[in-house]
Amino acid sequence: MAQYAVLIFSPAPADPMDLTPDYLALLERYPAQVTELGGRIVTGFALQPSTTATAVRGDLVTDGPFIEAKEVVAGFFVLEAPDLDTAVRIAKLNPATIHGGVEVRPLFTPPVE
């Protein structure tokens, strides 16, 4: 099994309190779908809206997310899956993909040799 970070991107400011009942209903069903497709959610978090973010670049401290964009990181979870095809199949079912999207990125493990 490999581990992937699934980064969830939603239209700014991605306030979890603004999620629609439809979205929440889809989210409710998600863990069962993940299991059915052969994956496992190791851990996951939703974030406060991007208006609460603070960016630090060198000495410069600014208000807002690190990269200004239409979509911002709304949360992430760590997914265990046998391969990328499975991970992508699982990612496709995430409700975030309807109005935003997700990034599937393998976790780094130091090489054995």
Partner: peptide, 14 residues
């Protein structure tokens, strides 16, 4: 290698 792109023939749906 890192993302584990599998070495296989895609399933019928894909």
């Amino acid at each position: 290698t890192a993302a584990r792109i599998p070495y296989r023939i895609p399933e019928a749906a894909e």
